[in-house]
Amino acid sequence: MKNYNLSHLEELESESIYVIREVAAQFERPVLLFSGGKDSIVCYHLARKAFYPSSVPFPLMHVDTGHNFDELYQFRDQLMKDTNGRLIIASVQNSIDKGKVVEEKGINASRNKLQTTTLLDAIEENKFDCAMGGARRDEEKARAKERFFSHRDDFGQWDPKNQRPELWNIFNGKKHFGEHFRVFPISNWTEMDVWQYIKKENIAIPTLYLSHNRDCFERDGVIMAKTDFVQTK
């Protein structure tokens, strides 16, 4: 008898494509958040699969701190060129210049947290009603509590104690004006699934993920790259 089984990667892929298509069907102005990291690369790959032979019916958006590695920018731009992707760049530097956020000071200064303001402003300015992202539940314990379709109020806030129940694969994307959704198509993937999928599908990734020689220093047990944006002491 013929084997009608799917492997775990095929099942995960099908689930993610289903979620991405739901987004395209339920929202008027969705966007795919794209950082150039492996998870968002996989999400973009899934989106291209979901609508083939059509092009992806939504733009991508990079919330850019300006403090990324050069390789990442090159990779991002090449990928957009090769796939005809529509990329919007939301710049944290602009938010700083406009006085919306203030740069952190000191040795641990990072623009990571400032991204929230830039992201929320960009969602509002572009009138996006849904932002998809490559967050996975296995990454972090608060993310383990996320729904696939995660509601955000008109301030962009998440209320983890009052989330909508999510049953079967029926996703409720109904919202009031000004609210939006975050949707996580690869919620159920693990780091290993992502790598196995990259291998199976032969997906290009930035060389930063591969072993290379780099000028680094150690801080609090973490190996940091020496860049213009990091104070070494």
């Binding site: 775990h8 539940r137 296995d138 972090e140 314990k141 608060a142 993310r143 383990a144 509590k145 983890p160 104690k161 989330q163 919620s187 159920n188 693990t190 290993m192 699934d193």
Partner: peptide, 29 residues
């Protein structure tokens, strides 16, 4: 504490919401 991902859960020592966990063996995920 591994599965109680929210601050309120850790503070109250109860699980409030569904949490998802993942593991794999060579046979299955």
């Amino acid at each position: 504490l591994l599965t109680d991902g929210l601050r309120a859960e850790r503070e109250q020592g109860i699980t409030i919401d569904v949490a998802y966990r993942y593991f794999a063996t060579p046979k299955r995920k």
